[in-house]
């Protein structure tokens, strides 16, 4: 099960982001991805393995090779993380606003 940590780690590498960019244009084999990038085939295979573990990439057999494509799972994990990120920001804002209101109320009660 991919977590957003896996996704963040996987997308933290610029070459892997380039691999994702390439697959965004359509499914491709290792050789096709390698042809689009200044990276060797073994290196591309390694990057695809990491992206697959993070749930960002899936593959299926096509004759003697594998065709890789983008997979929603990892992106959904990331989306969930971002939802939590902004919920954290707004939650902190609301908590502080509450404290502000309460201290204004107390000041009113004191005067």
């Amino acid at each position: 099960m991919a977590t957003y940590h896996d996704v963040l780690d996987a997308l933290g590498d610029p070459t892997r982001r380039a691999v994702v960019e390439r697959l965004a244009a359509g499914p491709a084999s290792v050789a096709e991805v390698a042809a689009a990038l200044p990276v060797s085939r073994p290196a591309v295979s390694q990057h695809l393995k990491v992206l697959h573990a993070a749930g960002l990439v899936a593959f299926e057999p096509a004759g003697t090779r594998h065709l890789y494509r983008l997979e929603a799972t990892g992106f959904e994990a990331l989306r969930g993380w971002l939802d939590g990120y902004w919920s954290g920001v707004l939650g902190a804002f609301a908590a502080h606003a509450d404290r502000t209101v309460r201290s204004m109320d107390e000041n009113k009660a004191d005067s």
């Binding site: 963040l8 997308l11 982001r17 960019e21 697959l23 965004a24 929603a72 992106f75 990331l78 990120y85």
Partner: peptide, 15 residues
């Protein structure tokens, strides 16, 4: 194209 735009940008942001 699924996964190429918003999701990728989110990835860059989050990374």
């Amino acid at each position: 194209s699924y996964g190429s735009g918003w999701e990728l940008v989110l990835g860059r942001f989050a990374a």
